[in-house]
Amino acid sequence: MHRHIGLQRLGYGIFVAFVLSLPLFMHDARNQLFILTNIAVMAIFAMSYDLLLGYSGIISFGHVLFFGVGAYVTAIMMKNVSVSIPALLFVLLLTLLITAFLGWLIGFFTARLKSHFFAMFTLAIAELAAVLMEKAKGISGGSDGFSFPVPSFFRDKLTVAYVALISTLVIFVLLRLFVNSPMGTTIIGIRENEARMRALGYPVLRYKVLAVMISGAVAGFAGMLYGVSMRFVSVPSVFGINLTLDALLMTIVGGAGTLVGPVIGAVLVELVSQWLQLMAKSVPLLERWMLFFGLAYILVVLFFPSGILGGLQRLLILWRNRRRKAP
């Protein structure tokens, strides 16, 4: 048992070293650092989504709201207030506070709703926010958006890639500790059987609101990171519903309720979409690359309902059983 844990730790160590060395092997000619950063941002966003979908059993179609708020808080502060590292730290604090508060507000008023109503409600709120931001062109720049400066430290693509990768690792570890803690397991219990958890004495609503708040804050952080790496925001790029759908796709493809799954999903979806867009130049059919995602999504849901991780786990069990049966 102890040896097993030791090996596991070694495995983690090697993996972390590998991930952190990735930027060193990349040269900027083909935007690899940019793609890597984007993967990290989406991985964080997808992990925050998994906390709701996989761990709390809450389906949200409006998760992009938090992402957009994070991105816009960063953009507006950097453009209008001050461009400095302390200002950015203040932005971080502000983003976490605002998104957690929004999470509380939304959670408090809607978490008592049944799952599909909650999904619809969140969709409505996020779309409303998008429309409002679109109308408030003076602040948001609307569809055209605006670009803004960031502290010089973050102007280097390699630095940004490192910040994004390290953030992904740190958030992964923090979320993992949380879902394995007594409080996190309570949230999992609520996913399993809400009525039973109430009968045991758990104030279910409070825990659900907490899950929405944490998830929202992490998504807000992802949005902030997106803003810093892009130095540009527009309403469609940070409030578009397609971002929520991306997070949903990544979580489902990778395996909901695992935290590793969304990261794998983010890597896969981002890489494949980049590759398909590249291929589209020679194969015209691939211009409709979104179509392939739709197809992949349907196939995953039909054949790997627990995602790639769940599918692999099942194959492993099958293989072990077969080996055990064989003489």
């Binding site: 500790l177 949380f178 394995n180 803690s181 007594p182 397991t185 309570t186 045991l200 004495g201």
Partner: peptide
């Protein structure tokens, strides 16, 4: 989870 429901440990959010 049933044991934890009334214990102060239920508020812990970091330790396994």
């Amino acid at each position: 989870l049933a044991v934890q429901a009334k214990r102060p440990e239920r508020f812990r959010f970091f330790r396994h």
